[in-house]
Simulated assay, not measured.
Amino acid sequence: MQHAATGSSTLYPDAQPYFGVVENTVQALRLVQAAWLGVVPRIIRRLNDTERKEKIVSGAVFIFGVDESGMKRWTDGRLWSPSRIDGNFLVYREMDRKGDGMSKFDRFEEWTPGDDGRAVSSTQEQRQGRFWQSGTTAAENRTANKFKADGLVKKTITVKINGSDHHLICYYTQQDLYMGRFKPMSTRSDIMGLDLSPHIFCFTDFRLPPRLEKGPDGLSTIV
């Protein structure tokens, strides 16, 4: 019998997975730290076909350590567009070779920096309506395959914690995001209550490292 795909700590036997959207790098750091500690479950092996169908849904978030799982890449059996950069994330759109069109929630445009020079997350822009356009982009016109109607978006990031690479993969539909169907991370006190210590992370591989501030005690915190 195949062992369970998820693992957690004996300190948190009732650890619950995070369900929602990972909007920015700081949220990703919180989730990776939570998974590393066992507050949320980690993926410790590849999902089989049945598990993929059951678990890869809008709002699902998966986190795995390369060393622990033995996996260097995440595979889900779906067809995806080329990646697009969203700050420290890579974002993919689900494709459908047999699709015949896109819904109004499937318009997608290239990521651009915010007005203040900092990264604006794709989720923020989608809520503001900047990802829903009246026409298709030039990139879409050059693509033989079309986005799958009401298909998933996949958002990924790699975080190095205590010297070990951890991959985070978040799935959602633009419609679910636009309609506000996900609870914010602030509702998870078990995750938000963790001390997010900069010294356990390595930020050198990030395009846009998180901002650090020194407190009155002289210690740096991630903001």
Rank of each mutant, 00 (worst) to 15 (best):
G193R: 05
V21A: 02
F64H: 14
N162Q: 12
M95Q: 08
K155D: 12
F89D: 12
R130G: 11
R181P: 03
P17W: 01
S83Q: 10
Q175H: 09
D176C: 08
R73S: 11
K214F: 11
L208P: 03
R127G: 01
F62S: 09
H166F: 09
Q33A: 00
L29K: 07
S164H: 08
S122M: 15
V153R: 02
G99S: 13
M71V: 00
D195W: 07
Q133Y: 04
Q124I: 15
Q174A: 14
G101R: 04
K148S: 02
H199V: 13
D86L: 13
G135M: 12
R84Q: 15
V40D: 01
R73E: 15
G99L: 03
D67S: 11
G117V: 02
Q133N: 14
G99H: 02
I157T: 00
L177R: 00
H167I: 07
G163L: 01
I85R: 07
D205L: 12
I44Y: 03
H167V: 09
T6S: 14
T143I: 02
N24L: 01
E140F: 09
A144H: 06
Q175S: 05
I169C: 07
F203E: 07
S197P: 00
E125H: 09
G101H: 07
S121Q: 02
A35I: 03
S9C: 03
V21D: 05
K155I: 09
Q128Y: 13
R78P: 08
L152P: 06
R142A: 14
A138K: 12
D205Y: 08
K183I: 00
K183W: 07
D14P: 00
W80E: 07
G65Q: 10
G20N: 01
G7F: 04
V32T: 04
L11M: 14
D195H: 15
